[in-house]
Design a protein around this nucleic acid. Structure first.
Length: 476
RNA sequence: GCGCCCUUAGCUCAGAUGGUAGAGCAACUGACUCUUAAUCAGUGGGUCGGAGGUUCGAUUCCUCCAGGGCGCACCA
């Protein structure tokens, strides 16, 4: 390692001796390689182009050298010929290495073998690379190295670059979609003194001047609803949530969540919105509704199935929600814990065990038991159930939505039921949120979409770490 | 947190019932003015993840540790 670096450093010194700055500077008016490749027309041999990119391969042939440079849009071959470029510059080309960043000016032509190539009039070293890039053919395969040194992964693997560019495109599309429907994007606190809006272990941090502990937010929900009270009728936020829990192919401690709230809507409105949004993304990225995901193919064609929690539970377990003994019996058959657990949670555990795995094509699961939905309005026809849906695709929970509970008295009661004893409650209920509700919050639909998971689906990556630029890894 | 698996050259990978390792790419030297996984000739490169143990001898067997992958658990 040391050795390779020294060899390259020696070349760098030689360049300096020749008066060349090995780290370049401003290099204006380049065109993207993709644009250059599109511009080429076979009839013309005088199209001047200027490109900049990283040297990926080099094929020296005595008094000529072919090299491929890549930028973030594509790859193009460069042809450097001594008789064309002059003796001194040609000597400089011998000090180039794989991985160096190079600027090239020249005319386009097609080689005998049919490859569009820049016939270099001149080249400029824009940055000397001091480390060996990974192998040209296999690239960087080691998953750990790919994540730790994402910068290498990105310049080595165009597919990885494409995944992240798609991620950016998807998030941009979501913003455009929501902006077109009169939503406004807002920012709410990441550091909260009471972590609310979800149930999860938070990260704790400390503010020195105030000498108080703060929590990194587990959800923005309670602040976004305050904005509904304030009269911001359609708000959304796309930003990070932090949960101090296990790491898996579907969980990263910090992840990107989109939450939105629409006054005077409800969870039915949110279903329409969700389906419209995700389908528009599928159409944009795929042009058809059959999308591959790992080993499976998902059919995203709307309309998506809508089925209640109870229907699905019965469909996959043969047991009705009302049949408490049946639920317990089935749970025991499956080896699930039942002691000290109430019926709703037993039902929910059974649901997770039996139903979720089967939900491959998009399915809206409606009307969860009220006790596991503390922030949700109950169903008019049966208050044991709440107006909530979760959207499952490929057995992953992708979205979660409800008709927002706007009755402050009911909300107060639910918080207390959720938290249990008075001792547990101290300092854990966001009283200011309840105060806000008392002023009056419009009935509203709320929606949360796990952006990373959505991007996994839309880019065919089965691990969340493949769609997060710098996933959390233990320090080496 | 638990279980299974992985860690060998800069990168991608071989390998040995235990006798201190090999290929391709990359690098270095030379030849080559339309090549493209360029080619040809030659050269160098390794604490075999770390620490212990067994052994005459360990990279190989055992234990522990670290990092990672997958699954489970956790996760409204």
């Amino acid at each position: 390692m040391e050795k390779y670096e020294q060899e390259r450093f020696a070349k760098l010194q030689k360049l300096r001796e020749k008066g060349i700055d090995p780290f370049g500077g401003r290099y204006d008016n380049t065109q993207s390689i993709q644009t250059i490749l599109k511009e080429f027309v076979p009839e013309r041999d005088d199209l001047k182009v200027k490109a900049a990119g990283r040297i990926m391969t080099m094929r020296p042939h005595g008094k000529t050298v072919f090299l491929d440079i890549r930028d973030w849009t594509g790859k193009i071959q460069v042809y450097i010929k001594r008789d064309k470029i002059g003796e001194e510059p040609f000597e400089l080309s011998k000090l180039l290495d794989l991985g160096d960043l190079l600027g090239v000016e020249g005319v386009l032509f097609k080689t005998r073998t049919g490859e569009v190539t820049i016939y270099a009039d001149s080249f400029t070293l824009l940055s000397k690379s001091l480390l060996n890039p990974p192998e040209k053919w296999h690239g960087l395969k080691d998953v750990e190295l790919r994540h730790r040194q994402r910068y290498v992964d990105l310049f080595t693997s165009p597919e990885v670059m494409q995944t992240f560019l798609k991620r950016i495109q998807i998030i941009k599309h979501i913003r455009t979609f929501l902006d077109a429907r009169d939503f406004v994007e807002v920012e709410t606190p990441m550091m909260q003194s009471i972590p609310g809006g979800a149930v999860a272990r938070p990260f704790i941090t400390h503010h020195n001047a105030l000498d108080i502990d703060l929590y990194l937010r587990i959800a923005p929900e309670l602040y976004l609803k305050r904005l509904l009270v304030g009269g911001m009728e359609r708000v959304y936020e796309i930003n990070r949530n932090f949960r101090n829990e296990g790491i898996s192919t579907r969980h990263n401690p910090e992840f990107t969540m989109m939450e939105l709230y629409q006054a005077y809507s409800d969870y039915n409105g949110m279903m329409e919105l969700t389906e419209g949004l995700v389908v528009s993304l599928v159409e944009k990225l795929y042009g058809n509704y059959e999308i591959p995901f790992g080993e499976i193919t998902i059919n995203m064609k709307p309309p998506w199935r809508r089925a209640t929690f109870c229907e699905l539970l019965e469909e996959h377990s043969g047991i009705k929600y009302d049949d408490e003994e049946g639920l317990i019996r089935k749970s025991k058959e499956l080896g699930l814990e039942t002691a000290g657990i109430d019926r709703d949670n037993i039902a929910n555990n059974l649901f997770e065990e039996l139903v979720e795995k089967a939900l491959v094509n998009p399915t809206f699961v409606l009307d969860y038991p009220t006790s596991i939905c503390p922030l949700t309005k109950t169903c008019a026809h049966d208050p044991r159930f709440a107006q909530r849906f979760e959207l499952y695709i490929a057995s992953m929970e992708v979205a979660n939505s409800y008709s927002e509970l706007n009755d402050s008295i009911e909300q107060d009661k639910r918080f207390h039921e959720q938290l249990g004893t008075e001792a547990d409650i101290a300092g854990k209920i966001d009283e200011d949120f309840l105060t806000a509700l008392k002023y009056g919050m419009p009935p509203a639909g709320g929606l949360g979409i796990g952006i990373d998971r959505l991007i996994m689906l839309l880019t065919n990556n089965v691990s969340i770490r493949e769609v997060i630029l710098f996933p959390l890894l233990k320090p080496k």
